[in-house]
Computed example of a mutant assay.
Amino acid sequence: MIGQFPESVLGWTNAARNGHELANHTLFHACPEKLGWQKSISIDNYTIDKIIKEISTVNSMLSLLDPKRKTRSFAFPCNNVFIAGTDYSEIIKNKGLVTYGRTGGDSNSVITDFKYLNRMQVPSWHVWTGTTLQQLISFAEKVKKTGGMGVYQFHGVGGQIFQISKETHRAFVYYLKEHQDDYWVTTFSEAMNFISDQQKE
């Protein structure tokens, strides 16, 4: 209808208002051409300057959806931090584009060494298609047992790629709610702010 936000815009805006973090993930999600990406938007054909412009553009777009957040965290497309052999993670941090970065990992990627954690290359569990509720819970229990931090990298809930069912995801959220005395469920940036304070001590 005329005069109303498109549904997707309203969804992201409401998510931000309800405490969710809208982080940067680039505009075109450049990944290696060998994984099926078109040559024009494959990371193989990117330059540092191009990725900087892209991240900056997305920051501007996100500021329209989530104006209260002044800094952004970043999820590296395809968990890749290199362009033409150069690690660009610290470059985008030093330019003030992002404060924290998330890369990949597996179900063993539990963070326990907070003091020496690279805040621009924080590992996460790339949750694959078919992951079960018990596997999601097992990772949480491993995090609790070690007193560490775990980052779940979900892509498609009920659709898209690397998907798990909506029912499985919902059941896991309910599990965390029922055990909220055992887990601190928060945004990536809030968790990283806490770790940053520890590293300063």
Results as ranks from 00 to 15, higher is better:
Asn79Lys: 11
Val81Glu: 06
Val81Leu: 11
Phe82Leu: 12
Phe82Met: 10
Phe82Tyr: 11
Ile83Cys: 00
Ile83Arg: 01
Ser89Trp: 04
Glu90Trp: 04
Ile91Lys: 00
Ile92Val: 10
Ile92Met: 01
Lys93Leu: 06
Asn94Tyr: 03
Lys95Trp: 04
Gly96Val: 06
Gly96Ala: 06
Leu97Cys: 09
Val98Thr: 07
Arg102Thr: 11
Gly104Trp: 07
Gly105Gln: 03
Asp106Ala: 04
Asp106Asn: 12
Ser107Arg: 06
Asn108Ile: 06
Val110Gln: 00
Ile111Leu: 02
Ile111Ser: 02
Thr112Lys: 03
Asp113His: 13
Lys115Arg: 07
Lys115Gly: 03
Tyr116Asn: 13
Tyr116Phe: 11
Leu117Ile: 04
Arg119Glu: 00
Arg119Gln: 03
Arg119Trp: 00
Arg119Tyr: 04
Met120Tyr: 05
Met120Gln: 13
Gln121Phe: 05
Gln121Ser: 12
Gln121Tyr: 05
Ser124Gly: 11
Trp125Pro: 14
Trp125Val: 14
Trp125His: 14
His126Gln: 14
His126Cys: 14
Trp128Gly: 12
Trp128Tyr: 11
Thr129His: 04
Gly130Arg: 08
Thr131Asn: 05
Thr132Met: 14
Gln134Leu: 13
Gln135Ser: 15
Gln135His: 15
Ile137Leu: 14
Ala140Gly: 09
Ala140Phe: 04
Glu141Ile: 11
Lys142Glu: 15
Lys142Pro: 15
Lys142Val: 15
Lys144Arg: 15
Lys145Ser: 09
Thr146Arg: 12
Thr146Cys: 10
Thr146Phe: 14
Thr146Trp: 09
Thr146Pro: 06
Gly147Tyr: 10
Gly150Lys: 02
Gly150Thr: 07
Val151Leu: 01
Tyr152Phe: 15
Gln153Ser: 14
Phe154Asp: 11
Phe154Ser: 09
Phe154Ala: 10
